[in-house]
């Protein structure tokens, strides 16, 4: 921190991406986003059809499943 050597190989475009760039935050966001998006769409369907909340429930479960799937595809090995 105090030694002000510039980092080696600066401005080079190659090199592997850094190991952990906010992957945890991304994962949490996917989980919550999945639930909110499909839960929200389910809720809209509920309002449209006039049901008590069955579609919101299905949507939230589906959404969290999709969130997990997205995490596996995007962040998994």
């Amino acid at each position: 921190m105090t030694g002000q050597e510039p980092p080696p190989d600066k401005r080079g475009d190659d090199g592997s991406p850094p190991p952990d760039t906010g992957a945890g935050m991304t994962a949490v966001t996917y989980l919550i986003a999945g639930m909110l998006v499909w839960g929200g769409i389910g809720w809209l369907i509920d309002r449209y059809v006039g049901t008590q909340g069955i579609f919101a429930g299905i949507g939230a479960v589906l959404g969290i499943g999709l969130g997990v799937y997205l995490i596996v595809r995007r962040l998994g090995a």
């Binding site: 991304t26 966001t29 996917y30 919550i32 986003a33 999945g34 909110l36 998006v37 499909w38 769409i41 589906l62 959404g63 999709l66 969130g67 799937y69 997205l70 595809r73 995007r74």
Partner: peptide
């Protein structure tokens, strides 16, 4: 567009949009 089979994409793209372009600035 995440790396996933095409038939599941319509389900995933809204989530991606929401988490990448709406949640980020808000959070």
């Amino acid at each position: 567009i995440p790396p996933a089979p095409w038939f599941i994409l319509p389900l995933l793209i809204p989530i991606e949009f929401f988490s990448n372009f709406l949640v980020r600035p808000f959070s």
